[in-house]
């Protein structure tokens, strides 16, 4: 049985991690490689590095950083943020990324999913979807939730799968940042609707929330940032708790 995955997410700006927690023994919490290695040591199953740089220099720094991550980290990692062309994906693959995640660019240009997946395989493409409840309809949003499109979640996720995405990373913008738990019914319904793995993101405030989305929510993985960054728990402690609750995790 494939283990449920726990995936810490690290935001990177101009080559440095932001919002990092100061683990004991970590010399430089802003160093994305050191922080990633610490998460891997604690038992993280994968890592996601999200580039939130707004400048060209920031982007270039990120590529160099991805090379260093690939050299130093012995678990798979995904990179995202600002990927809008096949060339962007190729550059990050060459730097050593195992997967890329695309979001707004795929909504703008859905054929981008086909292009990257047919060239590098579905396992390389994570389709990140930000959704929001608008008058009872689950709609797709872009640009960090600021722009609401008329695309419906279930149709878009299915289209993404058919175009070759290997995984869906779903964030409910109504729950993101609230630390009040995930919308588990929504995740379970989407899981039933698709054949590819779903990574739940946004809303975890406790171990119970994560346990809930991996069991009743039928998510294959949980991505979390603040729960680790603020030092509420460590990956190791979280996985221990999940294990005690009968959830198959890699120990």
């Amino acid at each position: 049985m494939v283990a449920k995955r726990i995936i810490p997410c690290l935001d990177v700006k101009e080559g440095r991690t932001v919002k990092g927690v100061n683990f004991v023994g970590l010399r430089d919490v802003g160093d994305a490689v050191e922080l990633g290695r610490e998460y891997a040591r604690q038992g993280a199953d994968e890592l996601v590095y999200l580039d939130i740089s707004a400048t060209v220099e920031g982007r270039n720094t990120f590529t160099a950083l991805v090379e260093r991550i690939a050299q130093n980290i012995n678990i798979p990692f995904t990179v995202g943020g600002g990927i809008s062309t096949l060339d962007d994906a190729a550059r990050l693959l060459d730097a050593g990324a195992d997967k890329i995640s695309i979001n707004s660019a795929a909504v703008r240009n859905p054929a981008l999913i086909d292009k990257i997946a047919s060239k590098y395989g579905s396992q390389f493409v994570v389709l990140a979807i930000d959704t929001k409840n608008v008058d009872g309809r689950m709609l797709i949003t872009t640009h960090g939730g600021r722009q609401i499109t008329q695309r419906e979640l279930f149709a878009w996720a299915r289209e993404g799968e058919e175009r070759g995405a290997g995984e869906i990373l779903l964030t409910s913008m109504d729950h993101d940042g609230t630390r009040a738990g995930y919308p588990c019914e929504l995740f379970a319904a989407l899981s039933k609707h698709l054949s590819i793995p779903i990574i739940a993101s946004g809303g975890a405030g406790s171990v119970n929330d994560i346990a809930e989305v991996l069991s009743t929510g039928k998510a294959d993985a949980a991505l979390a940032a603040s729960i680790f960054h603020f030092g509420d728990t460590t990956v190791g402690k979280l996985k221990n708790e999940l294990y005690k609750k009968g959830i198959e995790v890699r120990m």
Binding site: M1, V2, A3, R5, Q123, G166, I196, M251
Partner: peptide, 28 residues
Amino acid sequence: KVPHMGWNRVEEISSPLFKGVDNGAFVY
């Protein structure tokens, strides 16, 4: 789900290749 993607157990291990690895260990 296929592709089989993620961490799963190796069982019934028997080879010098697995020296020091526990039966049932997870690999990617």
